[in-house]
Design a protein around this nucleic acid. Structure first.
Length: 368
DNA sequence: CTCCCGGAAA
DNA sequence: TTTCCGGGAG
């Protein structure tokens, strides 16, 4: 079953396959551009969320009018016929699902922005060839039950991430300082045990060095010795200085507020950038996928390489695959949940399947 | 794919 | 003693 957004954010089932052509007129495309179907008598609501599909929104764009968009489209889906290239449409504002409406049944699970100059809502009908919904991406069966089981296991066992996670950094500070603290904590936390990172942050804080101007004027060796023994402290000390300088010169002492700008900072890659967006800016651009999330999602069979059943090979692949079906309200909590689970039970080596409530039924990898 | 690094576990 | 754990960068 597919779903489609119509006016007033009502989410109604669509007939199974369909490409709707939007012709004529010059109005921007809106929710009401989608053909609306009344709920069918085949009780669409009774399906469990595990069985329902995630609509994959495809927009076919006319080639000449929107050059940049077409480039992106062509890059994403090479095997489509040259006549009709499409882009999977992610999280465009106008098309996001209303949170309180049938969220568990159908999920937007879209994150990649249309990277062209225009968002979907800015395209005119002339520029759009057609819009369709397909049901090609299905959430894994029973994912909600599995998640619930993991939550139960987590609530009875303490993981390092619970007390030391870097999202706790500087929680008592004013907003701007807090954001910087989160950024620094994220930077230091990579390749580092949570306790060690926590200690380093405390030492920086005690020395008043959790601020860009202070770091900028402090000797690199001093910083180095304060953050020791976090992993790769030498590189991190120098990255910290560079980041402080960038924050001061380009962002008025604040931290960058977009994913792209965060990624430009030395030592900040996709994992940390998403974490900082989530925690510091409270702006969910994507799932923060670290090695635990990567490993566990593959063990559970929750992610795969596009159009295959193969495991994903990198955290980035996992993130994209997971975002295709996981409801957005789970994007933030999934990280601490699975990290803790991965630290204590579903460990990379010798996972404790015997005490894992889910291993018998659901786990494909650490199976007994 | 390799390197960066310290500490913990095997 | 060796192996593993953690992201990013070249």
């Amino acid at each position: 079953m597919s779903f489609c957004l119509v006016r007033n954010t009502a989410l109604l089932p669509l007939v199974p396959t369909r490409i709707q052509t939007i012709s004529s007129a010059k109005m921007p495309i809106t929710r009401s551009s989608f053909k609306r179907e009344t709920p069918s008598e085949t009780n669409p609501g009774s399906e469990g969320s595990g069985g329902s599909s995630v609509p994959e929104l495809r927009v076919f764009v006319r080639r000449k009018r929107v050059k940049k968009t077409v480039e992106v489209i062509a890059k994403e889906v090479k095997e489509e016929s040259s006549a009709q290239k499409f882009v999977k449409l992610p999280d465009i504002e106008d098309f996001s699902y209303s949170k309180d409406h049938m969220y568990s049944q159908s999920t937007p699970a879209k994150t990649v922005h249309l990277t062209g100059e225009k968002s979907l809502s800015q395209l005119t009908r002339k520029e759009i060839k057609s819009v369709s919904l397909s049901d090609s991406v299905r959430p894994p069966p029973n994912w909600e039950k599995v998640l619930e089981g993991i939550r139960k296991m987590r609530s009875s066992e303490d993981a390092p991430v619970d007390s030391m996670g870097c999202e706790k950094a500087g929680s008592s500070l004013p907003a701007k300082e807090r954001r910087f603290a989160v950024l620094v904590s994220s930077l230091l936390s990579s390749q580092t045990k949570d306790q060690v990172n926590h200690g380093a942050i405390q030492r920086l804080l005690q020395n008043g060095l959790l601020a860009p101007d202070a770091i900028d004027t402090t000797n690199e060796d001093t910083i180095k010795s304060l953050i020791y023994p976090v992993g790769f402290y030498t590189r991190k000390a120098s990255n910290l200085k560079k980041i402080a300088k960038i924050c001061l010169s380009k962002y008025d002492g604040d931290i960058p507020s977009s994913l792209e700008e965060l990624l430009l900072l030395p030592g900040i890659g996709p994992k940390m950038a998403h974490l900082v967006m989530n925690v510091a800016w409270n702006n969910v651009q994507g799932i923060c996928v670290d090695t635990h999330v990567h490993r566990i999602c593959n063990r559970l069979g929750w992610v795969s390489r596009p159009r295959t059943k193969q495991k994903t090979r990198t955290p980035e692949e996992t993130r994209e695959s997971l975002q295709l079906w996981l409801p957005k309200e789970e994007w933030v909590p999934i990280n601490p949940l699975l990290v803790g689970f991965g630290q204590t039970i579903c460990t990379p080596l010798r996972p404790r399947c015997a005490i894992c409530a889910e291993s018998y039924w659901f786990c494909f990898d650490g199976r007994l």
